[in-house]
Design a protein around this nucleic acid. Structure first.
Lengths: 161, 161
DNA sequence: CTTGTTACTATGATTTTCATAGTAAAATAG
DNA sequence: CTATTTTACTATGAAAATCATAGTAACAAG
């Protein structure tokens, strides 16, 4: 865990400073827990995904859970440390929505703040009620366009074998 | 700008999904605007830094500003898009402080929330007054230990030439 | 007993990164 | 006025990571 610096950003980046790693985490937060789904939705090669899952496990962000013996199959689940990464992903999402898109492309996800029952928006606090949002107080829903995109990716993945 | 996906996280990662890029941004937020300082504090090789600065400029997160003609010298400054990345960096910092350190190592930075005059803490909202923190409402101060670390890195960099 | 499913591993070409060294264009020092 | 220093890079070649593609292993279903 220890790097050679006190800087928390540098520390964090040795763990999550990699595109594939972040995309894998995105899938885990989206409750896709299996290798195949993660591979299909991130578009990574098997060894990219294998390597990131191993490293994330070694770094304590996820655990393997057996869901089938014979043949032995695992699901990947976030630990507390992994779950704690949520605010970073939300901040990244907000920045991506605001600065990496043309307006007409539209959102990928919409979150509802369960505490107040209204849209949570992009910020660290709910745009409707102003309270800080926690993951467990929100439900995310994919927009139709984004859901379609994901379905298409899954189909394409399945077709290529 | 357009990738092949609507996902803002994936979009963002094509821009900032890289250790060096994030460390360069950290230095720019720390108001280190020159090549040498950035190189020294990130520990990158010249071409790592050159490449990231070029890409960040191409992606619209920073601009070059001439501070000396003859010889031509530039400073690198964040654009609005670059400045908007601040919440991500803060979220990453919070996660790094909370999960990538042993408690006895201590903080690297402490921020004071100018609006209320008290410590801002790690969260997206001020731990003292509860309001969302913006960059312009905060002053960060390096802890003595972290400042010393940075001074040492600078000295070592300077000594190696 | 062949086909399908899931989760990988193997391979070789390409690309990126790293460490080290060197260049260029002045400013400053002797 | 020559020699050193400063700042910002570029060049080079070895080492490591990544990519596309293909293949394997272990079982389940028909």
């Amino acid at each position: 865990m220890a790097d050679q610096t006190l800087c928390p950003v540098a520390r964090a980046e040795t763990v999550v400073g990699d595109r594939w790693t972040v995309l894998v985490l995105r899938e885990l937060f989206a409750r896709n827990h299996r290798f195949e789904e993660i591979q299909a939705q991130t578009g990574g090669t098997p060894q990219m995904i294998t390597a990131r899952l191993k490293k994330l496990e070694a770094d304590g962000l996820l655990t393997r859970r057996v869901y089938n013996k014979r043949p032995l199959r695992h699901e990947y689940h976030l630990t507390e440390k992994g779950e704690a990464f949520f605010p970073v992903l939300m901040a990244l999402r907000a920045w991506g929505e605001a600065w990496c898109k043309s307006p007409r492309e539209g959102r990928a996800m919409n979150y509802t703040h369960l505490t107040c029952g209204k849209p949570a928006g992009l910020g660290p606090v709910c745009e409707s009620c102003g309270k800080p949002v926690r993951r467990e107080d929100m439900v995310g829903e994919r927009t139709a366009k984004y859901q379609k995109e994901r379905d298409a990716r899954w189909d394409a993945f399945k077709a290529s074998r």
